[in-house]
Design a protein around this nucleic acid. Structure first.
Length: 581
DNA sequence: GCCGTTTTCGGCCCGACTGTTTTCAGTCG
């Protein structure tokens, strides 16, 4: 049975949040509201598509989804609507649910606005603000009205607005550097999704360790990049930068800084799970420390996160793992993975150099000699001198052979002067839509390494695309698969594959799947990385650099590997010699 | 509505900040 339309996790969680809002306004259903909120959170951060879990009949494996909500979602996926939800929402003004997305507007105020002013759309609300109607409502005032108006404008101009890790890192670094100029600032750390190295970032959260909180907050709110001060208190503040990015700052003194780091690094599900563990020992967790026995109990403070976790009888858990997907159980059993590190990487197998291989698209711009030099600086033992395959329409295989041999000569010439690093003649070979490779077997044999990649007809169906990719993975001269899902963050989802089949063939034929470290790709993604490792598949983390600075994207790929629980042994390019398996 | 080696009933995180109040409700993370 298939659903009449596709439901993404954000869409499903939105539906649940609307029900939570309705219950909240009803007032007598506080815990139902909380339950729906929890379910929405759970689905939003689920390690798989809720609809897939439903198809496999394991929706209830998500925490917060019990029998009742599972049943409603079953109806949703089957028919596209839920009669119970319609009943719950009955009597609520329709406009209210549209106002929930406005920053600062929660269920109660959304209801009040829609009901009292009879508003049906965001547009209506904006008009009401401009007509000064909102300020006259009981419980609202001039300031609230202005804030709502501001929130609406932000929503309209804002766009999707999740930052790439590269962008978030750069902004966080810049702000941190400004704050570090203060002698009172002892250290600055990232928090939240940025610290957990999630692939895209909403708001940037920072922690500052200091004994002069007010001074730090004053400086923070008066940085030259600040457009708005969203709030400003004694220990925390939020600003919006001129580019629209929101930054939340929390300050804490040394003695309880570890608790702050732990608490606000999250994730929420990780912390909820920890709290449940703690409750069994009558402990309660907060950003100030751990309290024993009730509200007035003894508070233990922690300078470091290590001490915080140790107090709970747990080893320190790397932030990348803190998603409540088994890391707490693993920590309890002392079976946390020994995660791969950037310094474990001994080579980069996917790079685009400036040799003209007469490719059809997206040629690299890195001179071979620069690649060799930079590779040595990075401590690599081998590096791909790569290209896309020559355009199929403009070359015969004989012509391609000539090009590859000519490139080999160019490589050999540079190799003479750089004996510390092995230069690899590499091609990212197009896996064509007609289920053939762009290079013949004879030509593939000339290369040190060949990685297959899908670059055309991305809208193929799952079965067809699986066959197409398997064709490449069944070729003895192909070593692995580049950017396996073809996704581009904030741009396109990528194609679907039958992963069980792909994993099987990779294991059987000894092919690696790539974790493409290019900031827009980060593909294979963390969830599939973990699945692949469980299946016994080896991975390669590659930069896919087209310009010299892109080589440094390697760290983003390593983050993805770590979020997928990868150890050094799972990654082929951690071997000091090129040993694909 | 969810959840469980102290519970299948009876609990359910909690503190900061803001705007509107004149002691607190709503929102957020």
């Amino acid at each position: 049975m298939t659903s009449p339309k596709g439901f993404s996790n954000p869409q499903v969680s939105q539906i649940l949040r609307e029900i939570a809002a309705a219950y909240e306004v009803k007032g007598d259903s506080f815990f139902e509201s909380r339950a729906y909120e929890a379910a929405a959170d759970s689905i939003e951060h689920a390690p798989a598509l809720a609809k897939d879990l439903w198809e496999q009949d394991i929706l209830q494996s998500l925490s917060g989804i019990g029998g009742s909500i599972a049943q409603h979602l079953d109806e949703l996926f089957r028919t596209g609507k839920v009669s119970h939800f319609e009943k719950v929402k009955k009597g609520f003004p329709e406009g209210m649910f549209k106002f929930l997305d406005i920053p600062g507007v929660g269920p109660k105020n959304a209801y009040k606005l829609a009901k009292e002013l009879n508003l049906k759309s965001i547009k209506d609300l904006r008009k009401a603000c401009n007509a000064n109607l909102v300020a006259r409502l009981e419980g609202f005032g001039e300031v609230s009205q202005k804030k709502i108006l501001h929130g609406i404008e932000q929503m309209i101009e804002g766009g999707s607005g999740r930052l790439f890790l590269t962008e978030a890192d750069a902004i966080a670094q810049k702000i941190a550097n400004e704050l570090k100029k203060l002698s009172e600032v002892r250290r600055v750390d990232t928090l939240g999704s940025l610290r957990r190295r999630v692939t895209t970032i909403g708001d940037i959260e920072l922690a500052v360790q200091t004994d002069a909180p007010q001074k730090v907050i004053d400086v923070f709110t008066s940085l030259s990049e600040v457009k708005d001060i969203l709030n400003k208190g004694a220990i925390k503040s939020s600003i919006r930068l001129k580019d629209g990015t929101q930054i939340d700052l929390r300050v804490q003194e040394v003695k309880s800084y570890g608790a702050l780091l732990q608490y606000f690094t999250g994730s929420k599900p990780h912390n909820i799970h920890l709290r449940e563990l703690a409750m069994q020992r009558n402990l309660s967790l907060s950003e100030y420390g751990i309290r024993e026995g009730g509200r007035d109990g003894q508070l233990t403070e922690f300078v470091t996160e290590e001490e915080f976790y140790r107090f709970l009888n747990l080893p320190w858990i790397p932030p990348e793992l803190r998603e409540d997907t088994g890391e707490i159980e693993a920590a309890l059993a002392n079976k946390l993975p020994n995660l791969v590190k950037l310094k474990d990487i001994k080579g980069d197998l996917h790079i685009h150099c400036d040799f003209d291989l007469e490719e059809s698209h997206d040629a690299g711009r890195i001179p071979i000699e620069e690649l060799a030099r930079r590779g040595i600086e990075l401590g690599y033992k081998y590096i791909a001198v790569g290209n896309h395959s020559p355009s199929v329409s403009k070359h015969t295989q004989a012509q391609m052979r000539k090009l590859i041999l000519k490139k080999q000569e160019a490589i050999d010439k540079v190799q003479k002067d750089y004996s510390q690093i092995k230069l690899l003649n590499m091609v990212e070979v197009d896996i064509l839509a007609n289920n053939t490779l762009a290079l013949s077997d004879e030509n593939l044999k000339l290369l040190d390494i060949a990685i297959g990649g899908v670059h055309s007809s991305l809208d193929m169906g799952r079965e067809e695309m699986t066959e197409r990719v398997l064709m490449a993975l069944n070729n003895p001269h192909i070593h692995g698969l580049a950017h396996p899902t073809g996704r581009l963050l904030n741009e396109r989802e990528g194609y679907e594959l039958d992963w069980a089949k792909i994993f099987n063939v990779c294991v059987e034929n000894k092919k690696f799947l790539e974790i493409n470290a290019f900031y827009k790709r980060l593909d294979l993604h963390d969830i599939l990385v973990r699945e692949a490792i469980k299946a016994g598949v080896k991975l390669a983390v590659n930069s896919d650099a087209h310009d010299l600075p892109h080589l440094d994207f390697m760290k983003y790929g390593v983050s993805v590997a770590r979020r997928g629980w990868a150890e050094k042994k799972d990654i082929v390019n951690t071997h000091p010699t090129l040993l694909l398996f």
